[in-house]
Design a protein around this nucleic acid. Structure first.
Lengths: 92, 92
DNA sequence: GCAGACCAGTCTGTACTACAAACCAGTCTT
DNA sequence: AAGACTGGTTTGTAGTACAGACTGGTCTGC
């Protein structure tokens, strides 16, 4: 019945989603510092979240230095909400 | 900082632990029906939980048919409590 | 001008692990 | 004797998290 969303359930991605749910958007470096993930891992986790259509990734520039902005989509926000529901059910 | 306990985090085991936390003990068949796991999987998840010292497994007999009873240890109860804490922190 | 650090990746290799399915051993029912 | 039930163990596979190496461009210091 109550299936757990594996995309969000993974601790690293759960942290990312939780961080994003509290802000409008976040940049790559901020996420890396908060999650303590290597660049490679953070990048691949963001890819997974993007493939699931849970986040949007906007690649721009701060001057001429690359700047990657990440924000939750509506789908992502809904999925997180639903995840919280099922988790609270299990942890009650 | 706030590390997630992977032993409990796995959805199948989380369900098992949650079920056990609500009862003194449960038998193998009950857990299998509630979790929808195959015997093999349930067995190996129980092994993982036992290795972590989160549950006790008592093998007895109902007449002459094997009966496997499972219950949370103090460690298991504490770990679940701590897991709930960190999760609630992330989901808040 | 060039080494080194910073930004944001991709790619590769490894080690783990969840899961299904097959097999096993004994018991009870028909 | 056949089949279903109890509660497992073993095996094989596919997925995946993670670290670390490599890439490419930019900026900083000497």
């Amino acid at each position: 019945m109550s299936e757990v969303d594996r995309v969000i359930h993974e601790p690293a991605r759960l942290l990312i989603v939780a961080l994003l749910s509290g802000a409008k958007e976040a940049d790559f470096l901020f996420l890396q510092r908060e999650t303590n993930l290597t660049k490679g891992n953070l990048s691949s986790h963001l890819m997974k979240l993007e493939e699931a259509n849970y986040i949007e990734i906007e690649k721009t520039f701060r001057g001429k230095i690359p700047l990657t902005l990440v924000r939750l989509t509506e789908d992502g926000r809904a999925a997180f909400q639903s995840y919280r529901k099922t988790m609270n059910g299990l942890l009650r």
